Computed example of a mutant assay.
Amino acid sequence: MIDWTAHRKHREQAIADTGQWVGLLDADGSPLMDLPPVVSMVAPETRNDPGSLELTVLCRSSRGIIHPAVTELVAKQLGVLSPEGKLVPVADQTRFVAIERAGVPRRVYWVTHTVARGDADAPATLTIHGVGLTKLLSRFPAMSAPTTWQQSFKRFERDWVGPENTKVVFSQPRELAGMKMVTVADGATLDGPAEATIRRLITESLAAAFRVAGITKDLPIQVAATPTGRPSPRILLRPTDGPLLEEIAQPAAAAGVIITARMWWPGDPPVTGLALSLPTVVVAVEQAKETP
């Protein structure tokens, strides 16, 4: 368990001493450790774009001590070099990098891959690559019929498409749940003010996905429901069960709607309309003061 009050004081002290706090988070968004000294950082932020991170840190001290971040990001592959002579990163666990500075919102990035440089058994630097939290929306479909997604799973050893006598089976059995997809021609359309309509599609798609997964409380990603009250142009959304972020990005940009995602931690100011107690990615959908 994390003492969030103590950790907040620790982060504030790091910011006072060095200007920023940079830490590695686990799959649940909880801090694992402070990252070692930063060599370089590139982290641009653009409206309605997930943004990217390229962070290089020292991971070997002058006495040859390896920072534990290496264990989290590359340890399973230590000693295995790519054809280019670089250590191959671990890719089977979710990790995040958080950056805090005084007077600005916390920025958190989903780690995509890490490059270690140095000796095969003792890397000297880690270059961590990541994307902004809005990219997490690409892991969910923009559901055309979210209420039809079922919670009951059945085991399938073969694809039901095609004749049974073909004997085409999956290499590994799969657990599948039933759902319906409404084609564009069928007219699955959401109509209304852009801010409210985009917020509704995100909320319903996330809720259905977590319901199917059996997650009914403390959802790891939630949508702030408070409207801005600004005039928002009318749009039509026709979800086609494609990646959620890709389906809403262009209509949002055209309507002047800004989509952001931030990591909320215990001790942060409360989010109106949400009862949060654990680390949570909070998605905000807000009409800009001026449309494009």
Rank of each mutant, 00 (worst) to 15 (best):
G178R: 13
V182D: 02
T183K: 13
T183L: 13
A185G: 11
A185T: 12
A188P: 05
T189K: 14
P193K: 10
A194F: 03
E195M: 11
T197A: 09
I198S: 02
I202C: 04
T203F: 02
S205Y: 05
L206W: 02
A209L: 00
A213P: 00
I215L: 14
I215V: 15
K217S: 14
K217I: 06
Q222P: 08
V223E: 05
T226V: 15
T226S: 14
T226I: 10
P227Q: 11
G229M: 12
G229I: 11
R230D: 04
P231Q: 09
P231G: 12
S232P: 09
R234G: 04
I235T: 08
L236V: 15
G242A: 09
G242Y: 03
G242E: 08
L244Y: 00
E247W: 01
Q250W: 00
A254W: 02
A254M: 09
G256R: 02
I258T: 07
I258M: 07
T260Y: 03
A261D: 03
W264D: 08
W265D: 06
G267V: 06
D268I: 11
P269Q: 11
P269G: 09
V271G: 09
T272K: 15
T272G: 05
L274D: 10
L274Q: 08
A275M: 08
L276C: 09
S277I: 07
L278S: 12
T280R: 10
V281D: 05
